[in-house]
């Protein structure tokens, strides 16, 4: 294997890693606001992509609209997950919500399998016929598009969090829920809006994953759930910058080992990376618990 192949696999991995970053942000934001893990999050994301696929089989749509529909659909699914697993279920027993989200993960998967007979379905891509060459180095157009779109979504999220009333409310609830209530901020409404926002991010990520693979398959939910959780842990629970960096890292890492060791060994090395972090830096890249009182 030549050096340039290593560079190429890493750069492709970083570009694709933005989808993991989006999924990681979703996990980490829900954890930040509610201090709970939503294991149905990746299923929400893939579920959104499936809804957009289903609509595109009824009406022919340009790919970009399909992606947008995926985001909106996943936002709605995210809200339903919130209602079923966090609003109607008592919050004071941590295992209840966790198991409810596992149930939701399986439920969404089963609905998808039922509706598609478990067969992979074609998903549209953008710029998959474009390739940018710089001498020996090159970038896939579709991956570059994924990278740009994902980063645009992250910028919109940061704008929401740091420049709007909704953002003040979200961060206030995450940092000090009782004081947030005393300021007149509704915790339940903030929780719900967090599920909708993260759902939309996830729906976009789900669409990007489908677009880069070229198909949607129910087999995607489990690996995306696992990668999302790994990204969250490596980034540091509750840290958005951590999730972004960890997402790119995991993307690069898995693609590198895909090139070096092949597809069957790839995920073993990703698990090894997680193991190394859990051993040597269990709080992740951006450890935050020290700042909470």
């Amino acid at each position: 294997m030549e050096f340039i192949d290593i560079v190429l696999s890493i750069s492709d991995g970083v570009l694709f890693g933005t989808t993991y970053a989006l999924i990681g942000i979703g996990f980490t934001m829900i954890f930040g606001v509610m201090h709970k893990i939503n294991l149905a999050y990746a299923a929400t994301s893939i579920g959104g992509a499936y809804v957009s696929w289903a609509i595109s089989t009824l009406v022919p749509l340009p790919a970009i609209l399909v992606f947008l529909i995926s985001a909106i659909a996943a936002g709605v699914i995210g809200w339903l997950v919130y209602l079923c697993c966090f609003r109607l279920v008592p919050l004071d027993t941590p295992l209840t919500t966790l198991l409810a989200t596992v149930g939701m993960l399986i439920f969404i998967d089963e609905v998808v399998v039922h509706e598609t007979d478990g067969m992979p379905q074609p998903y549209p891509a953008i710029f998959d016929d474009v390739f940018f060459e710089f001498g020996e180095f090159g970038l896939r157009g579709d991956l570059l598009f994924i990278f740009v779109l994902s980063f645009a979504a992250m910028l919109v999220l940061l704008y929401l969090l740091y420049r709007t009333r909704l953002g003040i409310a979200t961060r206030a609830v995450a940092q000090q829920p009782m004081a947030a209530q005393l300021c007149g901020i509704s915790i339940e409404r903030t929780n719900a809006s967090t599920f909708v926002i993260t759902g939309m991010l996830g729906g976009l990520a789900g669409a990007m994953i489908g677009a880069s693979v070229g198909v949607l398959s129910p087999l995607l939910t489990l690996p995306v759930t696992v990668k999302g959780l790994i990204v969250t842990v490596i980034g540091g629970l509750g840290s958005i910058p951590g999730a972004i960096i960890a997402g790119l890292m995991v993307g690069a890492f898995e693609n590198l080992f895909l090139a070096l060791r092949g597809v069957t060994e790839r995920d073993m090395y990703v698990m090894l990376l997680l193991f190394l972090f859990l051993t040597f830096r269990p709080g992740g890249l951006f450890h935050r618990s020290a700042l909470r009182d």
């Binding site: 003040i168 961060r171 206030a172 940092q175 000090q176 009782m178 004081a179 947030a180 005393l182 700042l291 909470r292 009182d293």
Partner: peptide, 12 residues
């Protein structure tokens, strides 16, 4: 209410 222990939002 000015709550006991101040409860400012530490990362704001």
């Amino acid at each position: 209410l000015v709550p006991e222990n101040r409860l400012v939002f530490p990362e704001m």
